[in-house]
Each structure stands twice: as C-alpha cells, then as structure tokens.
Nucleic acid binder design. Structure first.
Lengths: 226, 226
DNA sequence: CGGTACGTTGAGTCATATCAACCATAGTGG
DNA sequence: CCACTATGGTTGATATGACTCAACGTACCG
C-alpha cells in the first residue's frame, strides 16, 4: 500500500501542505491504479469525477487539433497531478492523458480537492502557485512555437527533456518517445523531426539508437535552440 | 474616487469574493492611475511590488522573443487583473504590459493579494479558477499556433476579438490594433497579416478603414478558422 | 509468416518569410 | 508654413523552410 504522506514528501507533491487529517482522508478515499503504455486516463471533452496523482511512470497530456493531430501540452511524472484544472473549474476535461511509460497512479475524487482548497488556505495557496507556474510555462511555449523555427524547437525540446527527465549513466535521455510524439510536442511533421534528428546526429550533437537518444553536446543544442 | 466594491460587482472582478473589511483595505491601499496608449505598466524580467486591476481601457500582455519580437499573450480590460501571477509565484514578471487604449488602472500592493489568498478561502478558490481558465485558454492557443495555418489563425483572431470586445453599431470591432500587433498575436509577419486582411476583404468577409475593421461575415470567418 | 506500427528517405509543392521600395499620415521644430 | 522625420501601411519579387505524398525498410508480435 502506497501512503500519501510518504509519497508527498519524497516527491514534493502539493499534498505535503495538507494536515494529518486531510492526508488520512486522502489515503482512505484514493484509488490506486496501474496503467500500461498506451492506456488512456481520461478523454478531452469528458466530465471526470476526480483527478490523478502520478506515483510512477510518465503520462502525456495532450489536446486533439481539428484534424485529429495530437498536440502534447506537457508530461506528468512522479509527484505531479493532472486533470485538477477541470475539477477546479468544474468543466469537462480540456485535454486527454495517455500513458507513455507504465505508471502507478492514484485517482482522487473531485470533492476532496475542492474541499481541501476551500478549507485549507496554505494548500490553496500552493495550488494557486502550481497553476501560476504552469501558466508561465504555457506562455513561454506559445512564444517559442510562434517565433522559433522547427529546428530551434526540436533542439529546445531535447534540452527541456534533459532538464525534466535527465540522462542515464550512458547519457541516454531517460524518456523515450516516438518520432511522432516528438513532432507533436514541437508542432511539426514526423518527417521533419526525423530529418532534424539525423542532422543533429551528423553534427555530433546527439546519437541515436532506436527510440533512445544519446546527448553528446548539450551546450551545442542549447545554442541551436537560441 | 473609484470604489472597489462598486467596480467589482459591475465587472465581475475576482474582488467580489472579498469581505467588507478586505474591500475597505483594498480601497485604502490601492493607487488609482491613468495611463495613455503606449505606456508600459511593467517590464518582463523585473520584480514588481504589486499588480494591476483594469478599470477602463485595454492593456496588452506580451512576451518578448529572442529577436525582440513581441508575442501578445492576452488582452486585459475592465475588471481583469494582470501581473498577479508574478506576485503569487514571487517571481520576476514573465511578461510585459503595455497600454493599447487609454486606461484607468488600480495598482495594488503584493502583500494584500497574498494575504487575501491565504486567509479568505472562497477568494482563493476564485483565484484558482481564474488561473485555471487562463491555463485552459493558453493550452488551446498552443494547439492552434502549432497546428493551424496563418490564414486560419488570422480568421480566428478576428472571431475571438469580436467575442471579447464586440462590435459597435456600424459593425466595427471595438478594439483597434496595428497590423503589427495583429501579427504579434497570430505569430506571423506584418506583411502576411496585411495580405490576408485584404484577401478577406476581397472575399467580402470584412471591410477596412484604416485601423478599424468592419465585420461583414462572421460565420464565414468562423468557417475559415475551422 | 503475415500484419501492424514505426522509422527513413527522396522529390515536389506551397505557404509564408524576407527584402525592398514606396505611399500616407501626423507630429516636430525651425 | 514648410521641410523633416518617424511610424505605419501596402505591394511586389524572391527565397526557402517545412509539409505532403509516396515508397520502402525495419522490428516486433501473435
């Protein structure tokens, strides 16, 4: 059994601002679940009766564009919560969420979050900060997509993924995505990502082995993303 | 003298969730200011000691890209607050704000907002909802810029401006922007906006008279923005 | 062994950016 | 009152980044 108090402190989840009683309620009411790569946690447009806190694995959060193309908005990993926005706004989900790497996830009923926010001011303040941070990131994202070239954005995504997920001892990125998923972050075509990755490879910035990307020259990538 | 209680209820500002005492403090501590077109309220990267509530006029909130190009993130008008994100995150401003239409604005010290959020749960809840809504909009924005063509985005911006600012009795948009500003919303070059606008004019979707845009066929624009 | 999903490469096209020239307007200062 | 300047708007020519389409390779899986 995974205990929220332990998990929250290990991961810096927002829940570390809950009182002992509130944590107990969380432990009691949450539903611990396993998901495998490809599973859908929730669908854009649907009403959901709760939200998710990731215990392990990686989830992609995305919107579906007019022609059905995915736009990846962010990744969520250990300690992060998703779908809380819809719960707090009391609106249908404005994104979908799908498993990238097999995950263990707690599902928590909506009422609990709303109650905590309404009754625990310091928790509410943390949730506000959380949304503000996401907002700041979204604003940068908008500016980048609007102004940078695809090459710059591909380089930037690699740098960002290094920052978020890190490298293993062989300098391989600790997240592996399909080329299509990379394209759906950057907002470009799969073929363009492929071409740029092999260009970066020729330029000795990265090495490729299947879906695994080895980062050779991080500084070079940073410079490219300008 | 502009009174917050009156203003807040007329405009649906978040402040309508404050208590009588809190509103009084707001009235006492706020600083009422006038700004003219082109004035800067605050600069990206600077720390600010408070935030702004718009009483009249229009403000553009934007980020500056690597090459100095503005990316307009949103517009703020009567009843809306700006720069609150930086205050709550206790970080330097991640955007700049500039006056589009002569404005009357209240400047409110940071401590007040933080205190209200920390001590008034229902106000905090409204602030959370506010940020969540902005976040949802930002996510749509990302998807649109990443996936739609410039033509679709220009049509979409016009539709959105109609929704946000409305039309006067001659069907002219109630906000007038330079072509460059339009380009900086859409994320394109000024010349492209000019060409597309005159194309829309040929197609009897709009009429142009200087900076004023007359909306002839809103449905047509909606269809174009797909 | 066939199927499905993913990856790669090439060729051709097109939307959009860039560059350059020019016009209109309004404000400024001598 | 008139050059002068700055700002914004417009148009055309040209270049090119990125998308699309198509073919084919690869790998894994039941």
């Amino acid at each position: 059994m995974v205990l929220c108090e332990k998990c929250a402190f290990e991961t810096n989840a927002v829940f570390r601002f809950l009182t002992r009683d509130e944590i107990d309620r969380l432990n009691f009411e949450k539903d611990f679940r396993h998901y495998r790569r490809g599973d859908i946690l929730y669908h854009e447009g649907n009403r959901i009766s709760g939200f998710f806190c990731i215990h392990s694995g990686i989830i992609k959060v995305f919107k579906t564009g007019v022609d059905g193309k995915e736009q990846i908005i962010r990744f969520a990993r250990r300690g992060e919560i998703i779908a809380y926005r819809s719960v707090l706004s009391n609106e249908p989900a404005c994104t979908s969420a799908k498993v990238i790497e097999d995950s263990q996830v707690c599902f928590i009923p909506s009422e609990l979050l709303i109650q905590f926010v309404k009754t625990n001011p310091s928790f509410a303040f943390e949730v506000v900060k959380l949304t503000c941070n996401e907002l700041a990131e979204a604003n940068s994202y908008i500016t980048d997509i609007a102004q940078k070239t695809v090459r710059e954005r591909v380089a930037e995504v690699l740098v960002k993924l290094v920052g978020d997920f890190g490298l293993d001892d062989q300098k391989f990125l600790r997240i592996s995505l399909t080329r299509e998923e990379l394209a759906n972050i950057v907002g470009t075509a799969t073929e363009s990502v492929i071409r740029l990755l092999s260009e970066f490879k020729s330029d000795r910035l990265i090495e490729l082995s299947g879906r695994k990307i080895k980062i050779i020259d991080l500084k070079g990538l940073e410079k490219l993303s300008s």
